[in-house]
């Protein structure tokens, strides 16, 4: 039940992009095409899950015992940056096909605030390791859901005759706003 609440809560009720405003840059930047948005979603899912696991371990076995909680930001970002590098190298060796699919997105992910944001939130919410991983994965799925829906809409908008002042970012933001409006219907679901 606990996990069910975390999953539904993170995917729908407080969707990371549409209500928490994390990961907006890739949401707006990489959502031009459906295929790229799916790739980005996969890469984020992969990195967020691993990163949350590592940062959780860092927090509970290094920072907390040493009384270095104030170093959280700097340690987490370094862990994430190093992880992304490692994932890149390992993927290249083990699974070239997966690397082909996710590779181009990996460097972009270091500065995706969703990754650092979820890592910090997991600590703030006092989750245990398993809850933290479920939380991270659900948020990544929420991100993927939002970005895929959005990419579908933007491909559709591309062939439409949008007023020229609204073209590009304005109409994208407006669509995101209406999407966020619709997502408010999920309020209270868990």
């Amino acid at each position: 039940m606990e996990y069910f609440v975390i999953i539904i809560g993170s995917i729908f009720v407080s969707n990371i992009v549409l209500t928490q405003f994390l990961g907006i840059c890739p949401f707006l930047g990489v959502s031009g095409k459906l295929s790229t948005s799916i790739g980005m979603g996969g890469a984020v899912l992969f990195v967020i899950t691993i990163a949350t696991m590592f940062t959780w371990l860092m927090q509970h076995y290094v920072l907390n015992p040493l009384g270095l909680e104030f170093m959280q930001t700097i340690v987490f970002i370094l862990v994430i940056a190093a992880l992304v590098q490692m994932v890149e190298i390992i993927l290249k060796k083990i699974s070239p096909s997966l690397f082909q699919a996710l590779g181009v997105f990996l460097p972009l992910i270091t500065t995706n605030c969703a990754v650092l944001g979820v890592a910090i939130l997991t600590v703030q919410k006092d989750f245990n390791l398993l809850e933290g991983v479920v939380f991270a994965m659900s948020n990544a799925i929420g991100f993927t859901l939002a970005i895929v829906l959005f990419a579908g809409i933007r491909e559709h908008l591309d062939i439409m005759d949008i007023p020229k002042q609204m073209k590009g970012m304005p109409i994208a933001l407006l669509t995101a706003g209406i999407l966020a409006l619709a997502f408010m219907g999920f309020t209270g679901l868990v």
């Binding site: 459906l34 895929v148 829906l149 579908g152 809409i153 491909e155 559709h156 209406i178 999407l179 409006l181 619709a182 997502f183 408010m184 219907g185 999920f186």
Partner: peptide
Amino acid sequence: FAILLMNAVVPL
């Protein structure tokens, strides 16, 4: 809400 949410899925 449901109709708006599904409106967003129509392109897909």
